[in-house]
Structure formats: structure tokens, C-alpha cells
Amino acid sequence: MSRLQDIPIQVLDGQGGQSETGNVAPVLHEIRHALARLASTGESTSIDLSAIPFAPGDEAALFGLLGQGEVSAVVNALGETRIEETTYPGVWLVTHRSPQETVLSTQIEITRTPSLLSTPAEDLSDALDALDHYLSSPTAQESA
């Protein structure tokens, strides 16, 4: 019986090497159309990557092609969500993670500002209440 070290292993480039399937190009075209729509009508698009058939390495290849742009943000809500603008302004990579750090879903948002970044309207009134509460408290008056 052959031992483990006798089995020939060929290591392939797993870091965004050129995928042979050609599954990345259609996604790029979809992004391109969404970007054109955003520029002309202002309509945002969100693409759920878990619904796209990818070979191992395809996703990394796509991320490699999109690159990293000027903005990156982290939202700490129900685990970490990382929001990064790619080298193509208006194309955002949104990665939702669980509190246990497993990836829940990955989305490409074609928008001016990803919705998760803007403050929810209900939170504004909560913030107002909280600040009012603080200002009317004795601690605030003392430090003033």
C-alpha cells in the first residue's frame, strides 16, 4: 500500500489564479450594466454572490479583478460586516459575517452609498432622545 508521501501532489495556484471556467466575465458584465444604470437613472443594484455558480478560485479571481478602492468600513452589528469600495467607484463589496466570523453572504452593491452605512431614521430619534437625556442629566450640567 502506498504511503501518504508516495502520492504525487500537484499544488495549483489557489490565490486568484486564472480560472479555466470563464464564469467571472459574465458577473463583470452584470456589474457593468448595473453601473451604467446607476450613472444614468440613479438606480442601485445588489448582486448576491451565493446565487452565482463559481469554481474554486473564481470568487478570489473576481475580487482580485475588482481590487480595493478608497473607502472601507466595518459595521459591528450581529457580527462584523465589511464594506469596501472597489477600484471602480460605485461598486462595493459587502461581506456579512456572523458573530462566529463565518461568512453569511457576500454581495456586490452597485450604489453611491451602501444602505447599511446610512443611519436608519428610527435611530435618529433614539439618538436625539439619548442626547437630550444626557444633557438634562446632572453630570452634563456639572461638566459644562
Binding site: A51, A77, L78, G79, H96, L116, P120
Partner: peptide, 23 residues
């Protein structure tokens, strides 16, 4: 203790789970 952003994120991942479009 889940914030509104957390709830939005929950809805986004639920949509993904239900194979519904992000819209």
C-alpha cells in the same frame, strides 16, 4: 439587543438564504 442595522443585515442574509433577490 440587535440594532436596526443588525436587523437589516439579518434580512439581507435571510433573503440570500431564501434564494430571493436582494431587492
Amino acid at each position: 439587543g440587535i440594532s436596526r442595522r443588525g436587523f437589516l443585515k439579518f434580512c439581507a442574509t435571510t433573503a440570500s438564504m431564501m434564494a430571493l433577490p436582494p431587492s
